[in-house]
Structure formats: C-alpha cells, structure tokens
C-alpha cells in the first residue's frame, strides 16, 4: 500500500512539475543544468520520489490506519487528474 500511495503522489507531482517548468523558466534552466536536459532531471526526480516515498511509507506506522479499499480510487483519481491536467495544460498553454 505504501508504494501505491507513493505512485499516486509521484504522478500528481509529475504533472505539477511540468506546469512549474513551463511557467517558471529559471526552474527549467536549473533542471537542464543538473543533467544536461530538463526532461532527464524530471524523470530522475520522479524515480527518486516514487522509490523514496514508497520506502518511507512502507515503514510508517500511520499507513496501517488508511483503509486499503481507498487506495485504488486514490490511485485512479490521481492518474485521471494528472493526465487531464497535462492534456488541458498543453491545449491552452
């Protein structure tokens, strides 16, 4: 369950980071300076957040308090929101 919640948060963060990069050029330049390309940095941030949060959540006692039946709607909701968020952003950006 820890990694499922980590995936939901990472997928939402991924869309938020895409918006931030497009809205704030210095962030895009900073991410480009880190690895040579903003997209490479973006992917690495997603991987670190997913596996990092997953490991943290796995060992957190509060994760047991979350109703497991809620994880699937949370994950589906995050994917739908993140996908629509990206698509609509690039339609109107």
């Amino acid at each position: 369950m820890g990694f499922s919640l980590a995936a939901a948060l990472t997928i939402l963060l991924n869309t938020a980071l895409a918006w931030a990069k497009d809205s704030y050029a210095p962030l895009n330049s900073f991410m480009k300076a880190l690895t040579g390309h903003h997209w490479t940095t973006h992917g690495l941030v997603d991987l670190v957040v997913f596996f990092g949060l997953g490991l943290v959540f796995m060992k957190s006692p509060w994760i047991e308090k979350i109703n497991p039946a809620r994880v699937v709607p949370i994950l589906i909701g995050s994917v739908v929101a993140a996908s629509l968020g990206l698509g609509l952003w690039y339609v109107f950006f």
């Binding site: 995936a7 996908s83 990206l86 690039y90």
Partner: peptide, 24 residues
Amino acid sequence: NLFMETKEHLFFATAILAFLLPIA
C-alpha cells in the same frame, strides 16, 4: 505543442505505474 509535450510527461506516469506492478 500538444502531443509531444503531453507524451513526454505522461510517459512518466505510465512508467511509475509499470514499476508499481511487480511490487503490488
């Protein structure tokens, strides 16, 4: 402007879901 920009970022979501699959 629409398809590549969306694809290059949505891909990360697909990949994260695929990485979640063997864990789940």
